[in-house]
Computed example of a mutant assay.
Amino acid sequence: MDVIGFLIEAGGWAWVVAGLVLLALELVLPGGILLWLGISGIITGLAALFQPISLPFQALIFGMLSLVTIFGWLRYAKTRQTVSDRPYLNRRGDRLVGHEAVLDEPITGGYGRVALGDTVWRIAGPDLAAGKRVRIVAAEGAVLKVEPV
């Protein structure tokens, strides 16, 4: 059977069925894109059922709806804030910003080490002698930026 002939004969129902198939595929292959394609297919099918629209115009409606819904969702998802009860779970250095510590060894050449809890951290800051108090002001990877207190 000719695919174009079937689409013309089935009208909007072909779009509705295709949209439902895409929604079912989204359940098996999650990612979000098939969801918006399925919704666009269903909307295109409903529009074709209630208003006689030519097949090329139906394809144009489906394409435009798909682009608008996908890019709209991506834009919304990018600006959406995710709330966490443990915001520093994988950023141990950021968790230490604001803490004060006593230098175990001096900072020479801009770098030194300090023990915080059960971990020895590499620190960066102005040259200071051992025994001085420092405050952690930033974390860049595994290096903590400090300033004298």
Rank of each mutant, 00 (worst) to 15 (best):
D127L: 10
G72Y: 08
G12L: 06
I39F: 12
L89Y: 04
T108K: 11
P52N: 15
P126D: 06
K78I: 02
V120A: 11
L96M: 05
L29S: 15
D127S: 14
T119E: 09
L74M: 09
W36M: 12
R95C: 05
Y76A: 09
G93Y: 00
F57H: 14
L74A: 03
K78H: 04
T108Q: 11
P106V: 00
K132F: 05
K145S: 04
L65V: 15
L74S: 05
R95L: 13
R122V: 14
F6R: 15
R91E: 14
G31P: 09
K78D: 04
R95F: 07
D118G: 15
P126F: 07
I4Y: 15
A142P: 04
I136T: 02
A101L: 00
W13P: 02
A142H: 07
G125R: 02
I8T: 09
L67N: 10
A59I: 10
G38V: 08
D2H: 07
G72F: 13
G45S: 11
T69K: 09
D85W: 15
T69D: 07
P126S: 04
V143H: 00
A10P: 01
V3E: 08
V146G: 00
A115L: 05
S84A: 11
R80M: 06
Q81G: 05
Q58K: 03
V143P: 01
D118A: 12
R86P: 02
D85V: 12
I53F: 12
T79P: 07
G32M: 10
K145W: 02
I53K: 05
L65C: 15
G19A: 11
L20A: 13
R80D: 03
G117Y: 01
P30I: 13
I61P: 01
T69S: 14
V120S: 12
V83E: 07
F50T: 15
V102P: 00
V28M: 05
V83N: 08
L35S: 14
V28H: 07
L65G: 14
I8A: 13
K78V: 06
Q81W: 09
V146A: 00
L22Q: 03
P56M: 14
P52Y: 12
W15A: 05
V16R: 08
G131L: 06
L34R: 06
Q58V: 02
G31C: 12
A101R: 00
Y76M: 14
G131H: 10
D104M: 07
R133I: 03
E100I: 07
I70G: 06
A10R: 14
R133A: 08
L128T: 02
L55P: 01
T69G: 07
I123H: 00
L144Q: 01
V83C: 04
V149N: 04
Q81H: 05
A18C: 11
H99I: 06
V68Y: 11
L55R: 12
P30A: 12
V16N: 10
V143T: 08
V17S: 05
P52I: 07
A59Q: 08
G72D: 11
W121F: 06
E147S: 06
E26I: 03
F57E: 10
M64G: 11
F62M: 14
G32P: 09
R75C: 05
I53H: 07
I8M: 15
L35H: 11
G41D: 01
G11R: 15
T82G: 11
G141I: 01
L25C: 13
F71N: 13
